[in-house]
Write a protein that binds this DNA or RNA. Structure first.
Lengths: 378, 378
DNA sequence: TTGTATGCGTTATCAA
DNA sequence: TTGATAACGCATACAA
C-alpha cells in the first residue's frame, strides 16, 4: 500500500505527507508544527526545513472541509459601476476585515438568474456568509435565501414576513425630504427622473414622489415624470426628453448617476443650475461632490446600511439561531450648490425648514473621505 | 462504527448520507443520482424525493476537495472606486463567465500586506486562478506569485525577467499621445497633475511627460508639475496648487479621477475649459464622458487588457505548463470637448496629426456602453 | 444498476 | 511529545 508515488498532491504539489516524509516524522507531527502547536525543538526544526525546501503551501479547501469555515464573506451587488455600492462596500469591508475575514464582491448585473446562481454556488460553503442588495426581489430570491446553508443578509426592502435579516432605509421619506426642500425654495414645477418601476427602489421613488407632491397640494403632472434606468446615459436622455415636452423649475433624480446625466443634459442646453432648474440627486455618492455645481442629494445611508448589514451577518455567523432581524437607517438630505441659488460655491447651505415627513436635513460639504484607499490606473 | 447519530453534517445539515439513508440506498447511488448519472427510475425517484424532503444542498468545499477546482476566479484591484477598474472588471467577467466560472473581486486598498495576504489565502485553492493589478510591484509580490499554487496573471508593468503572465500597456507612449495633441493645438505651457511617483503608473507618467516635452523641444518647468494621489480630491487640490503658482494653458492629468478634480478646480476659479485651459485625462473611463465638458482622455485599453488577461488565465488553468507570456495593448487618444476649442459639444473631433511615438488617435464619442448592467440604489 | 471501499488534504482524537 | 487513525462530505474505481 503506501500512498501514490511520493505523497504528493494530484497535480504534483507538496502536501503534509510530503513534508512529513521529508522530515522523517508523522503527518500528525508535521501538521502540528505547521499550525504552531506542540513539537520538540528538533521536530519543529526538521518540519520547518522540509516545508521550506519543498515549498509547502497548505490547501485551504481541505482545511475548510475540516473546520467548516473559509473566513470569506461575499457581497453581491447589481452594478459595481454605481458609486453607491462602492460606499457600501467600503463600509462592509471595514467591518468584515476587522473580524479577521476577507470580503469578496460579485457583480450580478441585476439578473435574477445570476443572483440566485451565485447563492447556489457561493453559499454552498465557499463563503461563510453573504450580503446581497438585489434591485428586484422575487420569490426565487427568497426561496434561495431561505434554503441557503449559510447566513444571508439583505440590504433593501423585503416582504414583511420574510424570515431574513434585513437592513433597509425609507426612500419614500427620502424623496419627501427632497421635495420639501425644493418647495421651500419656491419651486413648483418639480420633475422626476426615475429608474424602472418594476424595481424596488424605482417603485418606492415613484410612490414617494406622488405622495410628497400631494402633501404640498401640488397636482402631479405626468409630463414631468420620466423613466429610464439607473444609469448615467439613461438619465441624460430621459432628462432631455423631459425638457423637450415640459418646463420644470426643479428636477429630482432617482440616483446620482441619473442626476449627473441630467446635469449634462441641462448644461448642454445652456440652462443654468440651479438658477433655471434646481437639481437634486439621491444616494449622496462621491459623484454628487464631483459634479459641478456640486449636487444636493438625498443620503440613504448606504455606508451605514452596509456597516450594519455586516455587523448583523457576523452576529449571525456567530449564532445562527438568532431570530430574523430588521433594521432601519433614516434618510437625510445633503444640500449643496445645485439646489440653492444663494450659494453656488462648494459647501452647500443647510435647509432650515423641518421636513414634514421626518428624517434629518444635513449641511453639505462633508469632510473628504478619510479612508486610506488608493485610486489608480495602469 | 456507524456514523455520528443521524448521518447529518456537523451543524445539523443534511449530507449525502442523510439523503441515502432516507432513500434507502447507498451513498454512491445517492451521489450518482444527485449528479445526474445513472440510477434506475425507482432509485432516482427515491433519491430526488429524499433530497427534496431534507432540503439537501451539496457542500461545495467537499466537492472541490475531490475535483481540485472551485470554478471561481478572483480579481484583485487597489480601488473599486476608480472607474478604470470597473471597465476592466466587466471585460474580465465576460470572459470568465462565458467559461462557466464566476468572478469574485477583492479590493486591496493598494496595500502590499493586503495583496500578498490575499494571494496567500485565496490562492490556496479557494479560487482556480487570479488576476491582479497592483499599483506597486514589490519583490514580496513576485515571491508570493511565484510560490502560488494557482495561476496568477498580472495586469501592469513587471520586471522583464519575472516568470509571470502579464498584460501591459505603454503609458509613456500614452502620455506622448496627449502631449503631441496639446502641442498640435498650440498649447505650450502644459502642466501635469500626477499620482505618487513611487507607484508604477506614477513613475511612467512622469518619465513619459518629460520625454514628450523634450521631443517637442519644450523645457520642463517644474512649477507646472504637481503630485497628489490618484483620487478626485487630490486632483482638485493639486490642480488648485498648480494654478496658484503657474499659468498653464493645458493640463494633463494622470487619470480621469484627477482630471475631474482639476476640472472642478478650474470651473471654481471661473476658467474656461478648453478656451483658457485645455484638459486631458487618462484611462478614458465613463467619468470622461460624464464630465462637462466631456474630457479628452488617453485610453490605456483597460477593457482590452482585462479581456486579454482573463484569456491568458483561462489558458493557463487549462495548461499550467505554458511558458510565461507577456502581451501589450497599445494606448490611444480619445479627443473630446475639453481639449478642442472648435467643438465644445459632445462628440469630440479626431486629431489629424500622427503622434510621434506610435499608437493611434481615435475619434471621441464612443457608443454608449452596450452591456446590460444595471445601476441602482437601495 | 448497485454497493463497498478508497481517496481528496487537512485537522483532531487518543493511545502509546 | 509522538504517531496511527478517524473524521470532514463528496465522488468514483471496482466488484458484485
Amino acid at each position: 500500500m503506501g500512498r501514490k508515488r511520493l505523497q504528493t498532491s494530484a497535480d504534483g504539489r507538496p502536501t503534509v505527507h510530503t513534508v512529513a516524509a521529508r522530515a522523517g516524522v508523522s503527518i500528525a507531527s508535521a501538521s502540528r508544527v505547521l499550525n504552531g502547536i506542540g513539537g520538540s525543538a528538533e521536530t519543529v526544526r526538521k518540519v520547518r526545513a522540509a516545508a521550506a525546501e519543498v515549498g509547502y503551501v497548505p490547501n485551504a479547501i481541505a482545511r475548510s472541509l475540516q473546520s467548516q469555515r473559509t473566513g470569506l464573506v461575499a457581497l453581491a451587488v447589481a452594478d459595481i459601476g454605481n458609486p453607491v455600492y462602492v460606499a457600501m462596500m467600503r463600509a462592509i469591508e471595514a467591518v468584515v476585515t476587522s473580524s479577521g475575514r476577507q470580503l469578496l464582491v460579485h457583480a450580478t448585473g441585476g439578473e435574477i438568474e445570476s443572483e440566485t446562481d451565485l447563492l447556489r454556488r457561493l453559499a454552498n460553503r465557499y463563503v461563510d456568509g453573504m450580503i446581497m442588495s438585489p434591485i428586484r426581489i422575487t420569490d426565487r430570491h427568497l426561496d434561495a435565501i431561505v434554503v441557503s446553508p449559510i447566513p444571508v443578509v439583505v440590504v433593501g426592502q423585503l416582504p414583511d414576513d420574510a424570515p431574513v435579516d434585513n437592513v433597509r432605509t425609507d426612500s419614500r421619506a427620502g424623496v419627501a425630504l427632497a421635495v420639501d426642500h425644493l418647495v421651500a425654495a419656491g419651486r413648483q414645477r418639480i420633475g422626476l427622473v426615475n429608474g424602472p418601476l418594476d424595481t424596488v427602489p424605482g417603485a418606492a421613488r415613484d410612490a414617494g414622489f406622488r405622495a410628497a407632491l400631494a402633501s404640498h397640494g401640488i397636482p402631479v403632472d405626468e409630463r414631468l415624470i420620466e423613466v429610464g434606468d439607473f444609469q448615467y446615459a439613461a438619465g441624460r436622455d430621459a432628462a432631455a426628453r423631459l425638457f423637450a415636452r415640459a418646463e420644470p423649475d426643479a428636477l429630482l433624480c432617482a440616483n446620482d448617476l441619473i442626476a449627473v446625466g441630467a446635469l449634462h443634459a441641462l448644461l448642454t442646453e445652456r440652462r443654468r443650475v440651479p438658477e433655471d432648474v434646481a437639481l437634486v440627486g439621491m444616494d449622496d455618492t462621491e459623484l454628487a461632490q464631483m459634479a459641478f455645481p456640486q449636487l444636493s442629494s438625498v443620503s440613504l445611508g448606504s455606508a451605514a446600511r452596509g456597516r450594519r448589514a455586516a455587523e448583523l451577518l457576523l452576529e449571525r455567523i456567530a449564532d445562527p439561531d438568532l431570530p430574523p432581524r430588521r433594521e432601519h437607517v433614516a434618510p437625510s438630505l445633503v444640500v449643496r450648490a445645485s439646489s440653492t441659488v444663494g450659494r453656488p460655491t462648494p459647501g452647500g447651505t443647510p435647509s432650515s425648514r423641518r421636513p414634514s415627513s421626518g428624517g434629518a436635513t444635513r449641511p453639505g460639504g462633508r469632510a473628504a473621505p478619510a479612508d486610506g484607499t488608493v485610486g489608480v490606473t495602469s
